[in-house]
């Protein structure tokens, strides 16, 4: 039996400001067609966006659960304003078993009730993971920049404590968050009068150097990598060191097809070269990267040497 048989595929929360209608359609397809086990919902980046899609949340949850998916609600990464503090507390105090927390304000409100640790919580090492487990964490998503060697040690520590361990294997990496909205800034506005210009960029707004290399993507207060992280070839390694959950971040591409590529690779139904080609066909021109995993510049694409 392959070591990847038990590995779960998850779909991370939508980072962008997709409209309510786009989200409804997206999750309907995910429920019906995507071979993912768990789906994270909720607004993680900008509290101003939440009112647009929150009314649909109960229906989306029900739809996904009927399709056999585990639904996890994710909390905001940046918590400063009153409405952000309230949203975080309301979520953390819900009587739900699966909550992913992305800010210490959420940990404070959640207390020792079970929760997941999100990728913005900086669970970089075994000591921090042990601390989090003692405070009620049941699952931890590791930071996107953590190299493979550290992932192996962190994963072992988490597994020994009975925690689930998650690593992002697809999509743009979150590189920074800010109190300032860079989407609004690009349009000569401020966060308070942004008029939701971020809605125009379903896959983020590209930033290009003056010598015309696209390097970053702006998503409101978040800055992301231009490249999509792609750890398809590294998945067997991840599974073998104890990573239990692999996260696909929603991008403006056919995510059902993306999930199928990753699922087939996990089930060893596809040859790795075919899987890579399939992913390229789905995602078009975008660059893929795995530099963080290999302890190098994040944007880099490192070829795996074939195991001898």
């Amino acid at each position: 039996m392959a070591v990847t048989d038990m590995t779960k595929l998850t779909l991370g929360p939508i980072a962008y400001h997709w409209s309510a209608e786009e989200r409804r359609d997206f999750y309907a397809r995910i429920a019906d067609e995507a071979p993912v086990d768990e789906v994270y919902l909720g607004e993680v980046i900008c509290s101003k966006r939440a009112p647009f899609h929150e009314p649909d949340l109960p229906d989306t949850i029900a739809r996904l659960e009927r399709a056999g998916k585990t639904v996890v609600l994710s909390s905001l990464a940046e918590v400063m304003l009153k409405r952000e503090r309230k949203a975080t507390a309301d979520l953390a105090e819900m009587d739900a078993p699966e909550i992913e927390i992305n800010n210490a304000a959420g940990l404070y409100a959640r207390g020792d009730r079970p929760h997941r640790i999100g990728p913005f919580m900086n669970a970089y090492n075994e000591a921090t993971i042990a601390w989090m487990a003692r405070q009620g964490a049941s699952h931890v998503c590791l930071p996107a920049e953590l190299p493979g060697e550290a992932i192996a040690i962190a994963a072992k520590a988490a597994r020994d404590l009975g925690l689930g361990v998650e690593v992002q294997v697809f999509g743009r990496a979150s590189l920074a968050v800010s109190a300032r909205c860079y989407h609004a800034r690009a349009h000569g506005r401020t966060k308070d009068n942004c008029q939701f210009v971020c809605e125009d960029d379903a896959d983020g707004m590209p930033l290009c150097t003056t010598d015309e290399r696209v390097i970053l993507r702006v998503n409101g207060i978040q800055t992301q990598s231009e490249s999509y992280v792609d750890l398809l070839p590294e998945m067997p390694q991840l599974a073998s060191v104890g990573v239990t959950h692999l996260r696909l971040m929603p991008q403006a591409v056919d995510m059902v097809a993306v999930a199928q590529v990753f699922r087939d690779a996990l089930d060893e139904k596809s040859d790795s070269r075919d899987a890579e080609q399939a992913l390229k066909d789905i995602c078009g021109d975008v660059a893929f990267s795995n530099g963080f995993y290999h302890g190098q510049a994040g944007y880099r694409r490192i070829a795996l040497t074939t195991a001898s």
Binding site: A77, E78, F120, N122, Y124, P143, A144, E145, A173, S174, L175, A176, V177, S178, A179, R180, I215, L216, T223, S225, G291, F292, G295, Q296, A297, G298, Y299, R300
Partner: peptide, 21 residues
């Protein structure tokens, strides 16, 4: 500093050296 400190991997993305680590 403009980014939320402790949550920025911009340098690591371009250079392979991490601000946090």
């Amino acid at each position: 500093g403009l980014m939320v400190e402790g949550r920025c991997s911009l340098t690591n993305y371009l250079t392979g050296q991490s601000t946090n680590m």
